[in-house]
Design a protein around this nucleic acid. Structure first.
Lengths: 186, 186, 186, 186
DNA sequence: GATGAATGAGACTTCATTCAT
DNA sequence: TATGAATGAAGTCTCATTCAT
């Protein structure tokens, strides 16, 4: 594992554990076992480090979402597949989930993010847009629909990760159905 | 307005504007016009100040939710009323909304919060529980149902506040309907 | 117990427990149960409070030293009496002992102290001076002789108070004899 | 001279001049000419800095005590040599003397100190123990004998350093004799 | 690529004290 | 006499970052 990757991995760990605002460069140095200068050799500054990590994770997430989507499936089944892809990524990568959630909520970053988001989620946007055109989904603004569904996934994922709820196949299916019912035309 | 209230109001303003981690005590001092010692006369430390503010806002939110709920209404209409109460509170108090969202996502606080939350939201919990018993709502864990609905409200509110979407009566109604469809038994 | 006495008593307690430099006015306020203003009603400032306490204790100590000294005794027995008076005061008032020791060692106070010391210890000074004149004590500077003897008393007292040694009559007598042997002409 | 040593030297200077409680980190920074961060790079915190200095000085003192002790000398002459070694170290290093005295009396540290003390003073302890065994010294607890003698040295050293007394060879010899008379069997 | 000593602005907090009540 | 809210200077320490090696 290269020093650069050590730094990124440690940062992910720390932000997910202690939160964005409690993760100092000093802490990253101590936990990753690299020298302070090494961080500044690989990243312009702390913001660049965090941004890089965020961007990496967003890309990874973007890829996870479209996993297996090339199959021939009807619209609803594709919806379910995307839902599960996202959800699975979250619960299999709780630290990445934490990081993405925590960072996304940090006010001063939001503007930069939106642009990146749109790039990596283009496939999801296209998919929702198609659903509206086909008359399957409610005629609501695309962004709102996406946010609602992604919000649903995050809601369940967070509860499972925090062990506030026990995940069963039935629970998952009903929740997905609930999410589907909220966006489809009834 | 007492010094104590000035401090709380300024803190709300700053956290909503700049985020939790960028709001230093120094900034609060400068903007509220009190001496540093005054903050520590009224609050044990920065954490206590933030906690107090959070707790106050949660209580206020809890009260806002049940506004007008004493009316004779059928279950769905009560659902809509609560939804609108919450939503209205958010868009009429965008700073409080920002603060609550920002703070809730700060990892190291979550445990303490849950207890307070439950106290203030008891009416909402009872209402959801009733819906399940009556066979109106899906048989999902109460907490999950609440988080889904509250998540829906926050999703729309955020977009409206950030002006990513234009609020119309129609949009609101469809979104509420969408939220209702996700929890009711179809 | 008047507020003024409460303040003095609490200060003694705190300085003896936590040391001079760790005893803040805030701590005195909290522990004595008086308001901050009350302290400044009775004492000009913190220094005045400490000085008052110190002066009070020195006077008390000065009186303790000459207890029973009016008896008809030979020189050595008077020496022993004074030694025991001082020692008894220390071990019966460990907090006062701690305070006096701690405060005396605070560098910036020493000058003021010397003047007060001399007033209250005049009887001890006179007694030592007499011993030299009578050819009983070594011809050393009076201050040195006093410091040696007082140092001996403090050495034993500290060890007994800190429970580093168990006090017996024999131990006490030998130590006094040792102290006497160090100042008398052999 | 490394920054670390500059910090230690400045701290010694300041504590000896102004006392323990008046020596702020800010003062150390200003006088040593290093940046605040540099102190915290080398020492965990203020306490660690002071402890390090104390420990260093104790070690130095421990070595000074046994200087030239390898010579063939009778017991009393060895006693005198140790006495003079200690005394010389004190008056040649008045700042170190002040620091050691001031710090030793700071209440909250005493426990840790005792352990360190014993290590560095083992030779002195052994020497006293031998004296008792040989029937030369009074049968008093070792710690008490040591404290008495060390107290004697400190008493004279303090007066000389504070110029309350003028040091002559005769004065020194009588004082040592006085100290010897207090511990030897008469 | 990698190190870690050094920086100094700025973080949070405590301090002794004042003053209107 | 007594209160306690208010003050702001000064306290200790952490921060992100630089640079000579």
């Amino acid at each position: 594992m290269s020093k650069r990757d050590q730094i990124l991995a440690t940062t992910l760990e720390l932000v997910s554990e202690q939160g964005f605002h409690a993760t100092s460069v000093g802490l990253i140095i101590k936990k990753s076992g690299v020298a302070s200068g090494t961080i500044y050799h690989h990243f312009k500054n702390k913001e660049d480090l965090i941004d890089t990590l965020y961007s990496d994770l967003k890309k990874e997430l973007g890829n996870a979402i479209i996993n297996n989507l090339e199959q021939e499936l009807n619209y609803k089944d594709k919806f379910i597949l995307i839902w599960k892809n996202l959800f699975t990524f979250y619960i299999e990568n709780p630290k990445k989930f934490e990081f993405l959630e925590d960072y996304s909520n940090s006010p001063f970053i939001r503007k930069e993010i939106k642009k990146i988001t749109q790039t990596y989620y283009q496939s999801a946007i296209d998919f929702i847009e198609l659903g509206i055109k086909l008359g399957i989904l409610r005629n609501l603004p695309i962004d709102l629909l996406i946010n609602i569904v992604f919000g649903n996934v995050a809601t369940l994922a967070r509860m499972v990760i925090l062990e506030e709820i026990e995940l069963t196949n039935e629970l998952l299916n009903i929740t997905i159905q609930s999410s589907w019912d909220s966006v489809k035309i009834n």
